[in-house]
């Protein structure tokens, strides 16, 4: 299960709306082993595409160096689909390589409906998981 606070969830949805019709992407970092998404880090989609996203290679290095310095890891890796459902595409599965991360998919295909779903993607196997939205972490 993914447990995420409402502000972070809403900020991910807003990021996806802002980038539409291109895909939005980013990370929510959290303390290593905590499984708690704490620090939202929206990333640039270097592909600037409605059907593909990619972290810029220099941005990626900087992101991981910053997380390592803070003893953090990517608890959530998110991106949006702009014309299809919020479910991992074949490409998403091929690239997925953080076995501990929650892969969050958002869809902006409908202007008035928010889709926010979370998955584990391990060894090419996609498993959807429930999302629990909490007001805040005590």
């Amino acid at each position: 299960m993914l447990s995420i606070d409402r502000d972070t969830r809403d900020a991910i949805l807003a990021h996806a709306r802002r980038e539409h019709p291109d895909e939005a992407c980013g990370v929510v970092a959290g303390a290593e082993g905590s499984d708690r998404p704490a620090r939202l880090l929206p990333m640039r989609n270097a592909a600037r595409s409605p059907t593909f996203y990619e972290f810029d290679s220099a941005d990626l290095l900087q992101l991981y160096q910053e997380m390592a310095a803070k003893d953090e890891e990517p608890v959530v890796i998110y991106h949006s689909h702009t014309a299809t459902e919020a479910y991992p595409s074949r490409t998403d599965v091929t690239y997925a390589s953080e076995p501990n991360a929650h892969y969050v998919l958002v869809s902006t295909r409908a202007a008035d409906v928010d889709e926010f779903r979370s998955f584990r993607i391990v060894d090419g196997v996609v498993t959807e998981e429930p999302v629990e939205v909490v007001e805040s972490y005590a």
Binding site: V27, Y53, F55, S57, A58, L60, S89, D92, Y95
Partner: peptide, 27 residues
């Protein structure tokens, strides 16, 4: 990024630091 420095032919010397990261990408 070694894609800009000769990929697998990139020269290394004592004390260099190499970082391997999975690409974060998808469709």
């Amino acid at each position: 990024d070694v894609r800009f420095t000769g990929s697998l032919d990139t020269a290394l010397k004592d004390g260099d630091a190499v970082t391997i990261l999975p690409a974060v990408a998808g469709g």
